[in-house]
Write a protein that binds this DNA or RNA. Structure first.
Lengths: 188, 188
DNA sequence: ACTGTTTGCCAACGGTTGTTGGCATCATAG
DNA sequence: CTATGATGCCAACAACCGTTGGCAAACAGT
């Protein structure tokens, strides 16, 4: 396994991807134009097409970051709620690609389908540590999703001042108990 | 005060508004085209312009429904959380215009600004019944907003199956305690 | 130094969108 | 019945978008 010879265009590709992630995260797929991304990267729009094939492929490449939530096995059961919030938003703060995917899921039914898949896979995986019955797992995963995505919506998209001003620790303290309840306490 | 003479075009205007509300709610402002709305209403796109001036004015007219949450004074304090959820989603279920406004707030910064205003006015008004300190009112209104808008996002936009399948009573039972806590219980 | 490949820009196409002006048709007041 | 305004459609414009093809310059291997 050897690294392929570095090409001169690698820097350009990286600049395009960085600009794409920023634009897709801030403006969404539709409003982020190839022309604007190219201008941010300081090159011609046609270069984007040459290196990434199409706008759709550029988006797929730009947001293709693994989504795995870190392991939670070492966390005491009573603190799982806070831990989930903490690690979830460490992810959101670190990479605008996650935001770009949520923005797209809002506007594109196909992307919404993929987001449903993430909820039923990644979110449900967290719940499965507490619950055996698979129907109940899905139901609790849905509860968790409403609160987590609601925070993301208000914080990164609507930019509600009192939600956007909190740091991750404050988020964990405020919303940890809610997630804890959705994960483990009896359902109505 | 007398009603102005009914015109023959009133039916057309109503058909346009109905189609606009449906399209704006289902596809959002950008993807809902004047041509599609006109086709739904069975008339020519230019008629939309004649009767409403511009796409922007059409949207403003279509979603101009009062947003007032019904009074909560007759509700026992311990059941306020459930009551808020119940009445909030009675509103969402009844009129696609509310959904259209959320969809637009996601894509348009100016609409997001208006949505922040709604949160700081309507949502905060509910909280003010429980809390005196104005900073705490805004903070609790933010907490409530994340959960309510998160449900709306997962239910009407992402269409997460387990969230979309619930009826309003199930929503009230599942999320009422959370809202109750955000409204009245001590903050961390 | 020469040749082929890579990197970049420019101009343009085809499609979609909001928007406009003109022209036919219908209803209604006089 | 006639004249006037309301109602509707058609065609087109201007702007923007993703996308394409061709051409100049820079580079790399020999």
């Amino acid at each position: 396994m050897h690294t392929p010879k570095p090409r001169r265009s690698d820097a350009t590709k990286a600049a395009i991807l960085a600009a794409a992630r920023r634009r897709f995260g801030a403006e969404g797929y539709d409003r982020a134009t190839i022309r604007a991304i190219a201008a941010d990267a300081g090159i011609d729009p046609s270069m984007v097409m040459r290196y990434f094939g199409s706008k759709e492929e550029l988006f797929a490449t730009a947001v293709d970051v693994p989504y795995r939530l870190p392991e939670l096995e070492s966390v005491p059961p009573a603190e799982i709620g806070e831990a989930v919030v903490r690690r979830m938003f460490a992810l959101w703060e670190g990479d605008p690609a996650v935001l770009a995917r949520l923005r797209r899921a809002v506007n594109d039914p196909e992307a919404a389908e993929r987001m449903r898949g993430v909820i039923q896979d990644e979110f449900a995986a967290v719940v499965r540590a507490f619950v055996a019955d698979e129907a109940e797992v899905r139901r609790r995963a849905g509860l968790v999703a409403t609160q987590i995505l609601g925070i993301s919506l208000c914080r990164y998209i609507l930019e509600v001042p009192d939600v956007a001003a909190m740091d991750v620790e404050e988020l964990a303290a405020s919303y940890g108990p809610t997630i804890q309840r959705y994960l483990a306490e009896p359902l109505p």
